[in-house]
């Protein structure tokens, strides 16, 4: 509140800032304890460093892979595939979801198919993907697309159906054109839910890219892990896993930021 007793827009409540710091602190602490437990387990197991590498060995090889550029190259390859597949899914899935949400006929026609295809794991498509798209980027991108497309369509459809019908009457009252109904009503109204869907979907896409790279390609973090296994370099396997985890955190963080864009904030206070 400012002097006039009006609530000010951009103030962060104190308790939110404090819990924010606490999350960072306890996050660091939990990672630290995992490393300690890992070290203890590695020592207690008595297994060789080739079977169960200790943290120090992994750190050393991490630096090695970072220096010779391997890690960066594979990460870029994986991110590229996720980005393309994910974007395609969003660019096709959100418009389709809007159509389905607005059109009962389309919904009754397509929904059964979508709900039939959705629970099929994208990994089940691997043989077909390889047959249709050969090897290289296309089959991997196709799998990521499949994994992201259905959740985006379903999430968007539900978001559109959830729009308060009063808002459409307001649009009719103010003589919105179809285009205005889309840009001034539907898109902003579904924004908060679509962002939630994006956040969940990007996680799925990231899970799938690693699996996809274990079959059809010669690059990417999935390939790095598979290749390291063939070479019996469990420390490289662990490096791959660590990078996957870090990138996953980063992607989620980006999506969370997106949710904090001011125009989508209204969703936090409604419903």
């Amino acid at each position: 509140m400012d002097d006039d007793g009006k609530p000010t827009l951009k103030e962060t409540p104190l308790y939110e800032r404090e819990t924010g710091n606490r999350f960072v602190r306890s996050g660091l602490l939990s990672f630290l304890s995992i490393v300690v437990i890992w070290e203890l387990l590695a020592r207690a197991s008595g297994w060789s460093v080739h079977v169960f590498p200790d943290p120090w060995a992994v750190i050393l090889s991490f630096i090695e892979l970072l220096r010779d550029g391997t890690l960066v190259r594979h990460t870029v390859a994986s991110l590229y595939r996720v980005t393309v597949g994910f974007y395609l899914a969003v660019l096709l899935g959100v418009p389709l979801g809007i159509c389905l949400g607005r059109n009962l006929t389309a919904r009754s026609f397509l929904n059964p198919v979508i709900h039939f295809l959705r629970p099929i794991s994208p990994l089940a498509w691997i043989p077909l993907a390889m047959l249709w798209f050969g090897i290289g980027d296309p089959p991997a991108i196709f799998l990521i697309f499949l994994a992201s497309f259905f959740p985006m369509v379903v999430g968007t459809t539900i978001a559109v159906q959830n729009i308060n019908p009063t808002f459409f009457q307001v649009a009719a009252n103010f003589r919105f054109s179809r285009r205005e109904t889309l840009t001034r009503l539907i898109l902003p109204a579904i924004m908060p839910e679509v962002i939630t869907a994006l956040r969940m979907t990007v996680t799925i896409a990231w899970l799938v890219v690693v699996a996809a790279e274990m079959i059809a390609v010669q690059s990417g973090l999935g390939y790095l892990i598979l290749d390291a296994r063939n070479a019996l370099r469990m420390d490289f396997v662990m490096n791959g896993m660590i990078v996957i985890g870090l990138i996953g955190l980063m992607l989620d963080g980006i999506m969370k930021r997106l949710g904090q864009v001011e125009s989508s904030q209204w969703g936090r206070h409604e419903r």
Partner: peptide, 20 residues
Amino acid sequence: RGPSDQSIFVFQHSGLYPWM
């Protein structure tokens, strides 16, 4: 014959667009 901007309706529960 249909809604018009000559007859504006003020809704029982808010018809304000919450994103504006």
